[in-house]
């Protein structure tokens, strides 16, 4: 215990004595952590975005007015047999009208004009699927000769393109995120390696004397590893403060522009902040200790 505290203390003084090299190490480490976290967060935002659109998606099949009830039920059953299909809901002419009236209740003139004519709205089936990327499996059914005659229109194409684009965006950010984080990690490793190397060189005399008065290798090497770990801890603190500040100012804007997504984001941050801090802490300490360990292994010769 006494020994551990001494190693800890000595690690701290290493850190202080390194001056601007410590600052460089921390800067690059903070950049690494922020990059990593930002991509994690953006990834979550895109995923929730996709989810919320997926939930909203309805494939609506509109029927001709003369479509027979039996044919519609037959189609409904065919669709229900597909495992991709989540729910199917029949919307009758009357129900469609009711909805339309509800949606336009602020527009009495429009409603007035409807009263005079016969219900112009077609009956329809509203279909939800589990995975919108697999909407294509439904197409052959709609193209079936049996149903072609009764189907007036199938609407789903626009939604599908949006989702495809979002998918691509997620894929892209994932790749960019991984590459950027890796690049920063390697840079951080190199810079901290060199910082610790400098620390070892400037303290060569001290290290030699430590050896000669009977210090064990762990007592000599420990402080440098602690120094590396300290870079990780301090960088995490700074990075969390920066990310916190950015989100504090950004969250209202996000909520404003993206509605649900913004809510999800700040909710995500709030419910995952602990996890995010620990992930950063882990990565930070890992990078710090690994690079100092490499430097120590190379430059502290124990004999």
């Amino acid at each position: 215990m006494t020994k551990f505290i001494r190693i800890l203390k000595s690690g701290f003084s290493n850190f202080v004595r390194n001056g601007w090299l410590s600052v460089a190490s921390i800067t690059i480490m903070v950049l690494t952590l922020i990059t990593m976290s930002m991509f994690l967060v953006v990834n979550v935002v895109l995923n929730t975005g996709i989810k919320s659109i997926q939930d909203k998606i309805d494939i609506s099949v509109y029927f001709n007015d003369d479509a027979k009830q039996g044919d519609i039920i037959a189609l409904q059953e065919d669709l229900a047999d597909l495992e991709e299909v989540k729910t199917i809901k029949f919307v009758s002419k009357d129900e469609a009208l009711k909805r339309y009236e509800e949606q336009n209740k602020d527009n009495p003139k429009l409603l007035e004009s409807l009263k005079d004519t016969e219900n112009p709205l077609p009956p329809s089936l509203e279909i939800k699927v589990y995975d919108p990327s697999k909407l294509d499996v439904l197409t052959p059914i709609f193209d079936n000769e049996k149903y072609k005659l009764i189907i007036h229109k199938v609407s789903y194409k626009e939604n599908k393109t949006i989702i495809d684009k979002l998918f691509q965006a997620t894929q892209f950010t994932k790749q960019v995120g991984v590459i950027a984080t890796l690049a920063f990690t390697v840079t951080a490793l190199v810079i901290i390696f060199n910082t610790v190397k400098m620390a070892i060189f400037t303290r060569k005399e001290e290290i030699d004397i430590m050896k000669l008065v009977g210090a064990t290798p762990s007592f000599i090497k420990g402080p440098f590893l602690i120094e590396g770990a300290i870079y990780g801890v301090i960088s995490t603190l700074i990075s969390i403060m920066i990310i916190g500040t950015i989100l504090y100012f950004l969250a209202p804007t996000l909520v404003h522009y993206f509605g649900g997504v913004g809510d999800d984001l700040s909710g995500f941050i709030r419910s995952n902040i602990v996890w995010l801090v620990f992930a950063q802490l882990f990565v930070g300490i890992f990078i710090g200790t690994v690079s100092s360990w490499l430097a120590v292994r190379k430059y502290v010769k124990i004999s």
Binding site: T2, V213, G214
Partner: peptide, 11 residues
């Protein structure tokens, strides 16, 4: 005292 510290003697 340094010589004692490195060998883990109590403060």
């Amino acid at each position: 005292s340094y010589a004692l510290e490195v060998s883990g003697i109590k403060a």
